[in-house]
Amino acid sequence: MVTATAARVREILDAVVDPEIPVLTIADLGILRDVAVDDDGRVVVTITPTYSGCPAMDLIREEVERALAAHGYHDVEVRTTFSPPWSTDLMSEEAKEKLRAYGIAPPRSGDDEPIRCPRCGEPSTRTVARFGSTACKALMVCERCLEPFDHFKEL
């Protein structure tokens, strides 16, 4: 029997990454809302969906349970919350930098900022398709280096 603490649980969950953007953990993305351990040692993890139809939510729930089970925590409940709704504003600067290094232009803080090419930093880029390979991304192309790239949409 392992006694859980919220801090230890968070540490374990740092290994749980988004299945579609594996450079970001669910904590980086702001999907992980809360971790609590009640008096009986029961672990309650609260997550929030990025998009309403995000097909990764079920997988993320399983990954959370699996990661905790691997460390001996079996009495785990994963809850979903909707409020406040997830927003790309919740993403840390560090997370945005990880995205950029991975080749995905991170979400901007305002619509007036240019979407810069994650390869060469060029601000002059254009949208090829508003909807990309996953719900959270749009497809762009750089006007300078001509590389196509994904942009993580602001939400």
Binding site: P49, Y51, S52, G53, C54, P55, F82, V128, A129, R130, F131, G132, S133, A135, L139
Partner: peptide
């Protein structure tokens, strides 16, 4: 690109319905 858009729209609507 429009196929991707339609699939994304469908996913959002079905996701909202599910919730």
């Amino acid at each position: 690109e429009e196929d991707l858009a339609i699939a994304n729209l469908a996913l959002d609507h079905i996701g909202v319905a599910h919730h």
